[in-house]
């Protein structure tokens, strides 16, 4: 199973699309690793600098409809290449969400009010998230505060995360 703990990158916008996560011009790359430098290159978000803001982060917290648009699995891959194995948002585009779990990564939805609170308490600070898959909770902490947030994950999604993705799951079963 992959690592779902670490520093948080806050992206305060809804409808961040797959073209912003990884522009189409890089889809000609033949390996996942080659995508690494281009993560969130076209993200339209004032103050965000992909060259500086991604390094050292392991978790994205964002708003609604993250990953809308193209089916490109290059979007989860480029996040994973950069050490980001979990995205937490109000909700996700279907294909992106499925792609995350298919890769053994996590895309977790939290209520808008909870996302709001995460932004209020932790955005702009050196915040860390720890995932407890057993108890289905996140612990989010910074120098001032530490709070525990429960989350839900579908039974099947959890199996994919544990199996390391859909290929190994399906190959064993079908």
């Amino acid at each position: 199973m992959k690592n779902f703990n670490g520093k948080i990158l806050f992206l305060d916008r809804s409808d961040i699309n797959t073209d912003e996560i990884i522009p189409a011009k890089y889809l000609t790359e033949l390996t996942k690793a080659a995508l690494k430098p281009y993560c969130l290159e076209d993200l339209s978000l004032p103050g965000f600098d992909p060259k500086k803001d991604i390094a050292g982060k392991s978790v994205i917290v964002t708003r609604a409809n993250f990953g809308c648009g193209s089916s490109r699995e290059h979007a989860p891959w480029v996040l994973e290449c950069n050490g980001i194995n979990i995205v937490i948002a109000e909700n996700f585009a279907r294909i992106f969400r499925q792609n995350m779990f298919n890769c053994g990564l996590m895309a977790i939805s939290l209520e808008p009010a909870v996302i709001d609170e995460l932004f209020k308490l932790f955005a702009g600070t050196d915040a860390t998230l720890t995932t407890d898959l057993e108890n289905k909770t996140f612990t989010v902490s910074n120098a001032k505060t530490s709070k525990v947030y429960p989350f839900t994950i579908g039974e099947f999604d959890l199996e994919l995360v544990k199996a390391g993705g859909w290929v190994s799951y399906a190959d064993n079963k079908y």
């Binding site: 648009g69 193209s70 089916s71 490109r72 699995e73 989860p76 294909i95 499925q98 792609n99 298919n102 890769c103 993705g165 859909w166 290929v167 399906a170 190959d171 079908y174």
Partner: peptide, 29 residues
């Protein structure tokens, strides 16, 4: 492995765009 696969629903089919992993399993299984 293309989000606009939904086009084929015009024929009364269920057609969905998927990522490369879903495609890979589709090809194999």
């Amino acid at each position: 492995g293309d989000s606009h696969t939904c086009t084929h629903g015009a024929f009364g089919a269920f057609a969905a765009g998927v990522g490369t992993t879903d495609l890979e399993v589709g090809i194999l299984k």
